[in-house]
């Protein structure tokens, strides 16, 4: 079986790297955590990996705007390396702050080959940081990270997670083109106001993919629900330990995809 190599990017203020590494390892990947400074020195380091994960945290304190400074570093130092990475059919996953970075680099939704910012993630409507659990309904069937149609339950923990479109056309393109990877819904799968949609995101969109389906950015934290005792009312559930927790779906699909394609 192919060994799947994943890299979890570290940077000043990134703080979900260890649990993200753990989730990837549970899914069967061999994982390294690498600091952005090492990649800036040697972008070719990326060649050894098939999955790049930008984990959650507050890169550079979210100064200026969430994910902005790290996005700026990627744009100015890793643009070519990232392009090559994607052209080889590899996968990029951005979680929370990582999603904010992917949005701010223009890699998501990445219309017309990327580079343009047509969406942004900004302050929650509530005006404050929120840690709560949300239901997510897949909005596409062409993103390799998710099981089409399978609704999952995950926690969010962010202050700037409200997805905003630049204009109606951009939103329409996301809707029509299957770019909305997940939408916030209630337990029954229906849309709703806060707290169902916890931040006021346009069209209830919680996650975006690109035209290839090989990039996923999402605000919720799949790495925080990889075993059942992380569920917010696990003591009420009849738990089957064999059945994977919802967050594993993202990591397992990524590892399986690489195994099948490399």
């Amino acid at each position: 079986m192919t060994t799947v190599h994943a890299v979890v990017l570290r940077a000043a203020g990134i703080n979900c790297d260890l649990e993200t590494q753990h989730a990837l390892e549970l899914a069967g990947a061999a994982v390294q955590r690498i600091h952005i400074n090492r990649l800036k020195e040697n972008p070719a380091l990326l060649d050894g990996f098939q999955i790049l994960v930008l984990p959650g945290g507050f890169s550079y304190g979210d100064d200026v705007a969430a994910g902005k400074i790290l996005a700026n570093q990627i744009l100015h130092h890793l643009r070519d390396a990232m392009r090559t990475f994607l052209e080889k059919g590899k996968l990029i996953l951005g979680i929370c702050n990582g999603f904010q970075v992917l949005i701010k680099t223009g890699l998501l939704p990445g219309f017309n080959g990327g580079g343009q910012t047509s969406f942004t993630l900004t302050d929650n409507d509530s005006g404050r940081f929120e840690d709560r659990w949300v239901y997510l309904q897949p909005g596409t069937d062409r993103c390799v990270f998710l099981d089409p149609g399978r609704r999952i339950y995950l926690p969010i923990a962010h202050g700037e997670g409200k997805l905003v479109a630049k204009d109606a056309a951009a939103l329409e393109q996301v809707r029509q083109g299957g770019y909305a990877a997940f939408r916030y819904v209630d337990a029954a799968g229906n849309p709703g106001p806060f707290p169902v949609n916890p931040n006021g995101s346009v069209d209830d969109i919680a996650a975006l993919t690109d035209s290839t389906g090989r990039i996923l950015g999402l605000m919720p934290h799949p790495e925080r629900f990889v075993r059942w005792t992380q569920h917010p009312h696990w003591t009420r559930l009849k738990i089957n330990e064999q059945e994977p927790a919802d967050g594993m779906m993202i990591f397992t699909n990524a590892v399986r995809y690489i195994r099948e394609h490399f």
Partner: peptide
């Protein structure tokens, strides 16, 4: 107050500050 704090980062949470049928 509680929801403004990230109480799940590091992935170790077992008993969270708010639990129950409606969390």
């Amino acid at each position: 107050i509680i929801r403004q704090y990230d109480h799940e980062v590091q992935g170790g949470s077992v008993i969270k500050p708010l639990m129950g049928a409606a969390n």
